Computed example of a mutant assay.
Amino acid sequence: MLMRVSVAVPRPLMGSFDYLCDEPVAVGARVRVPFGRGQVIGVVVAVAPDALDDGSLKTVARVLDDAPLLDAPLLQLLHFAARYYQHPLGEVVQAALPKLLREGRAATRDLPRYWRITAAGRAALAGRLGGKQAAVLSALHENEIDEAALRAAHHCGAGWLRDLEKRGWLEARAHWHGLDAPAAAAPTLNAEQTAALAALPDRGFTATLLDGVTGSGKTEIYIRWIEHLTA
């Protein structure tokens, strides 16, 4: 199915540019498109299905992402920033991407691999188990440990750990450690912060200045104000 896509390109030009695309692409995904005498990497900001090829539009050279890198709320924010600061949308969108993604690198990341003990592993540890196996299972008794640290501490290889996994004593998962941790409690506002927060308007657009030295807690007031307005 041929689609008409609007692409924000990293050039000092206002608005977006339309192209034809003959493969599935989502709003927020990167594409490589012809622009001028070369090609640039832009981000799709709109998609219109069932487009007709009348010869007036160029075709997307390559779709770089299977899924959006920029979700709808973030794109909405970037559109607002471009309008508010009267800056080209393509340059604003590009500023939201890391350097390697702006260069067209694949949007992948290698997650650290963590090992943890299973119920069967705990049962084995409670039995007659000694040596390196007991040491590794004991180390994992309380918390999971990333593979690199576990191998370095106990001088074991990846194959040796997989052998324990086959026995059902260990299991592994790849993730960024700490993502499952509960969010830290918000700090308690002092009297001056509380008074400043109460003085901020409840609705509408205003220009507000908080006066305070570095580290006095101005950002926390803004966070509480935003939470209140968006609740």
Rank of each mutant, 00 (worst) to 15 (best):
A149Q: 09
E23S: 11
Q133I: 08
K132Q: 15
A149P: 06
A199R: 10
W225I: 08
R11Q: 09
G157F: 01
E144F: 00
G38Y: 11
E171G: 01
W169P: 00
H154C: 03
K99A: 05
D53T: 00
R167A: 04
A29Y: 06
A139M: 06
A8F: 08
L111R: 04
L100I: 09
A29S: 15
R128G: 02
A183D: 04
V47P: 11
E165Q: 05
L89F: 11
R122Q: 07
E144V: 04
G130D: 09
R122C: 14
E171S: 04
D66K: 07
L13D: 12
A67T: 01
G90R: 01
V33M: 00
E103K: 08
T219R: 14
Y222L: 13
T59F: 08
A139W: 01
L70T: 05
H177G: 03
E220Q: 10
D202M: 11
R37N: 06
T188C: 01
I117H: 06
A81C: 02
K58E: 02
L97R: 00
V43Q: 13
Y19K: 05
A61C: 01
L70D: 04
P49Y: 05
A135G: 00
E220A: 09
V43N: 08
G131D: 00
E227F: 13
D110V: 07
H141N: 12
E23I: 02
D54A: 06
A191V: 14
R167T: 03
R167W: 00
T206W: 14
D65C: 06
V40L: 10
T59K: 11
H79W: 12
H175F: 12
Q94N: 11
A123Y: 04
A153M: 06
K132I: 13
L74P: 13
I145L: 02
F205E: 09
M14E: 15
A152D: 10
E147T: 09
D66L: 04
A149Y: 02
A184E: 05
Y85C: 11
R113T: 10
M3I: 11
L170N: 02
R151W: 07
W160T: 02
L70V: 03
V47K: 04
P12Y: 05
F80P: 09
T214Y: 10
E23N: 07
A29T: 05
P201L: 03
V43A: 09
A81S: 05
T230C: 11
H87W: 13
R4Y: 08
E23Y: 05
L164S: 00
T59S: 10
T219E: 01
S56E: 09
N143P: 04
K218R: 14
D54T: 08
A183W: 13
R37T: 11
G130T: 13
W176C: 07
G28Y: 04
L179S: 10
T194W: 04
T230A: 14
T108H: 08
L200D: 12
A61M: 10
Y19I: 08
A186D: 15
H141S: 13
L229A: 06
D54S: 11
H175M: 13
K166H: 04
D202C: 12
R167M: 02
Q86K: 14
A185Y: 08
V45R: 04
A51W: 03
G15D: 08
P187N: 14
Q86R: 12
S216T: 01
W115A: 00
A199Q: 13
P24F: 02
T219N: 05
